[in-house]
Write a protein that binds this DNA or RNA. Structure first.
Lengths: 205, 205, 205, 205
DNA sequence: CATGAATGAGAATTCATTCAT
DNA sequence: TATGAATGAATTCTCATTCAT
């Protein structure tokens, strides 16, 4: 009857919204975007499929939010590394290693984040946030150049290579035929290797 | 007396087959696997949809052939570089630069080749050929280790990084909104940068 | 507060389900399983084709339900005769006569029930229920043997013959060109004849 | 060049025709009408699919000819029994037993002959030839009535029952789940049982 | 006459989105 | 606001039949 949204209701809406996103994220983590049907998402979120359309314009908007949110999380992690006291070289190493280690725990999501094709609306937004990761890496490079640790000419391309390497290495083991399970120790070793590779590629010799 | 498959007919069939594959390749190049419907492929090839099934078991087989063929072409290029007289370092540089330069001419196809999800039959075959590219890079590394140019511990991971870098750099500019067109000169510059990155990452310091 | 499946909606759903089954039954009765396409069934039921899949797993399930339901109805009729106070001979007579009389009112359905080929899922279920009819006849035979009315050696084969006779006689007049219409009187006469035949075949002489 | 069909050519045509029919019969025997595609028939007959349309108006005509021919063969067998010196009772017994025994050797064909639905053209013709079998049985009944062996009122209905029994018993074991294999001895026993049933049903008591 | 490549009308099924309740 | 039943466009694959060679 009341036209004002009671704070109770606002809270409930907030919960629904989160439940939907969280459900979508879970489904994508497990089976990729292809498994993320509105019906399935709603079911797992404990709401009706129709309700999804009250919180999101359409399916693409749900995906956009999930993907951006997830990349943003990674971004925060990387940025906190950038803010730290380490040397540029150490920052790069840690950023790459951390990204890889984290991604290995949810490779399907990582794949969907970076590569799985979606309609162009989603694609566009995703591109935007992927750029942010690249920017963070560039930031590290700029610092390193300034401190004399690196002598990089084309920061952008170098950053692209790093992002490419650190994402692909996670995605490649996704082959259904292999279905490799890394133990924690191997994840550590593996992520260090990638980080070494990236650092070697850019440091002053 | 015999009307069996005149060479004229054989030729026409060959043409049809090629037309179908070529049509599929074109469509994938432009809009990705998601746009490659049998109907569309057939139309653009100038044949009926039913005819596609005379040449290919099912849709997956069409895709498999397009994708593998394309990757194999790249493979041949890389392998011819490996067979050459260059030093390992030079080989790596040329292989990466060539791959990138070529891929920039058909980035959407490159994307589909490397990342776009497809049904598991296709996925499986694609994985196989993607591995071959990695193997070729590993081969260069092994040579370089032998000659003392490189001192690589984990050839496989390093190769993964290189493949990741060289494929991602092509895919990333794929922002549908930007639709960047590199001119030839920029392509050259760009691909050289990537190659430098990769060589620097692995060479002995 | 809860909008969950109001009883009104429940009722409507029940109606839809029935409408679909009833539409399918009607179509099969008129043209056999071969005419029962999802599209046609849905149209005649006044719903969309997609809705059919909300109520039934797939087309086979629709057919299974129609066919089993119809056979089960016959089964109930026969079984109620078996439960009655009649002598075995009278039971057999009545069971056969009743089956034939009823089937003559929907011969195409009877045909589809008994003979029209369907995919193996349907086939399997149908076989099961056809067996039940045979079992009911066998039951009568066992009773008759016990009471000394019959002296049957191989109950199963005899039951097969009875089922064969009583189903075939209905199916045979199905000549599409003739499209014979029996009047009620003739149906009575005809079904009595079949029943006589079956009783004569098995009773002690 | 010659407008007269050389006898050589006539012979070849005859051979092709026979090959097509024979191939169709084989396929139907093995998998039923549903497996009898023009392509498959032609292939197995060693001719092109197009050629089938030179000998037959359309697919239905091929089926019609196969089915009629097969039923006619059975008819000849039954008629030779009718022509023999046996008593009516013996004739009936032998006719039924023979039919069942023969059909058990090719149950899928028997099924297709008697029941598998086909388009209405085929249906119509098939009806016609199935009637002929019934007529033959009626003929035996007429003889038996004349000789006093039987006292049948409605020959037609009785014949229907016999045809129904003797066809159904063959068809029923076709259940793919059972896939019963009768040995020769069991076939003999089984067919005798059916024949006994039919004789008992009609003989004077 | 003989071939078999080519056609294209179907038919089953899926799923984002809408809307009456 | 919340529900979930209902819609229907879209897509793959099949197979009788035709027709250029």
């Amino acid at each position: 009857m009341s036209y004002k949204r009671s704070s109770l209701m606002q809270e409930r809406m907030e919960q629904n919204r989160k439940a939907i996103l969280s459900s979508a994220r879970k489904i994508i983590s497990e089976g990729g975007v292809k498994d993320a049907q509105i019906q399935t998402i709603a079911e797992q979120a404990g709401v009706s499929s129709g309700l999804v359309y009250r919180y999101f314009e359409n399916k693409s908007q749900v995906l956009i939010e999930v993907l951006s949110e997830a990349i943003h999380t990674e971004l925060l992690v990387i940025d906190s590394i950038i803010e730290s006291d380490l040397s540029a070289k150490q920052k790069l190493h840690k950023a790459v290693a951390t990204f890889v280690k984290r991604a290995l725990n949810s490779p399907q999501l990582a794949y969907s984040l970076m590569f799985e094709p979606v309609d162009s609306t989603v694609e566009h937004e995703r591109f935007r946030v992927k750029q942010l990761i690249k920017q963070s890496i560039k930031k590290i490079f700029a610092d390193g150049n300034a401190s004399g640790e690196f002598v990089l000419d084309d920061l952008n391309t170098a950053a692209l290579c790093v992002v490419g390497a650190m994402t692909y290495v996670v995605v490649e083991p996704l082959d259904p035929a292999q279905n490799i399970k890394f133990d924690q120790q191997h994840k550590n070793y593996f992520s260090r290797q990638i980080a070494d590779f990236c650092v070697d590629a850019v440091q002053k010799k």
